[in-house]
């Protein structure tokens, strides 16, 4: 039995937390009405920035999922020397200051960077390019997905994977037919977090790709630029990002939580 005082204290803490988190979000929509928000979106560059944000973050998330899913599966199923070190390395961008990430990317892939020459020789240009935005987003957002995916695959009952093998399914078929459906909810929430992080990416993008309108200026960069001359446009863009992020999180939760959503049929 919890004491009334403790329960009251916990409730107060929850109320405080909720209001602290919700008030700024609400403020965006109170400061500017829906009509004003939509009108401000017509501001030069706002729609460009939004569309660029969606395209680049989508590309980053697709890259992260395609490469990250099998890598996470390997890390979840195998025990090998140095595994903890590998996982720590993957998690490092989580705690890395975005500005430091941007500098690191420049040092690696910049014109005079570690592997910049080789990349340039291959005909790929990243710095101050849209592709550079995708690289910055992928770098900072990948750990959010991979961490979640490792945990999700570790939670899949090993007997299910073994059962699949004894029933004649190879490793690839077991991965796609049993492991992925079993880890679906965790994969989806990892994807939502990574997408949200990619959408919000600011520092690394600014340092590595710059803030060129129509090419590398994503919505967060545009919000910063508008701030000095048109607060309403900043508000409008922020409002759209808040709504989109909320829809993303909610959608993924519904998709991942409903057992009927993905059928793992023959």
């Amino acid at each position: 039995m919890s004491s009334p005082a403790f329960r009251l204290g916990s409730l107060a803490a929850l109320a405080l937390l909720l209001s602290f988190l919700a008030i700024p979000l609400l403020a965006i929509f109170v400061e500017a009405g829906p009509g004003e928000l939509l009108a401000s979106l017509g501001e030069d560059g706002a729609l460009d920035a939004l569309s660029l944000s969606l395209r680049t973050s989508l590309a980053a998330v697709v890259l992260i999922v395609i490469v990250g899913t099998p890598a996470a599966y390997l890390l979840a199923r195998r025990r090998f020397r140095g595994r903890a070190a590998v996982i720590t390395l993957i998690e490092l961008p989580l705690v890395l200051p975005p500005a430091a990430a941007g500098i690191a990317l420049l040092a690696a892939f910049g014109p005079n960077g570690l592997v910049g020459g080789a990349i340039e020789d291959a005909g790929i240009r990243l710095v101050l390019q849209t592709a550079g935005v995708v690289v910055a987003m992928t770098f900072v957002a990948a750990p959010f997905f991979v961490r979640g995916a490792i945990a999700a695959f570790e939670a899949v009952d090993a007997d299910l994977l073994d059962a699949s093998r004894t029933l004649g399914a190879g490793e690839a078929r077991t991965f796609s037919r049993v492991a992925i459906p079993g880890a679906r909810a965790g994969l989806a929430s990892g994807l939502a977090l990574a997408w949200g992080r990619a959408l919000g990416e600011f520092g690394a993008t600014l340092l590595f790709a710059g803030s060129l309108q129509g090419r590398t200026q994503t919505a967060p960069l545009a919000i910063f630029e508008f701030l000095s001359r048109d607060f309403d446009a900043s508000l409008a863009l922020s409002g759209v990002l808040v709504v989109f992020s909320a829809v993303l999180l909610l959608g993924v939760k519904l998709l991942g939580g409903a057992p009927e959503a993905a059928r793992a049929g023959a």
């Binding site: 007997d159 073994d162 059962a163 699949s164 004894t166 004649g168 399914a169 079993g182 059928r263 023959a266």
Partner: peptide
Amino acid sequence: ADRRRIGFVFQEYALFPRMSAWRNVAYG
């Protein structure tokens, strides 16, 4: 393992939770 042609019954049965009974049986 997948080439050994074994019938394995697991302790907790390890039935694929998202598949119907017949799909479980048809899996192999």
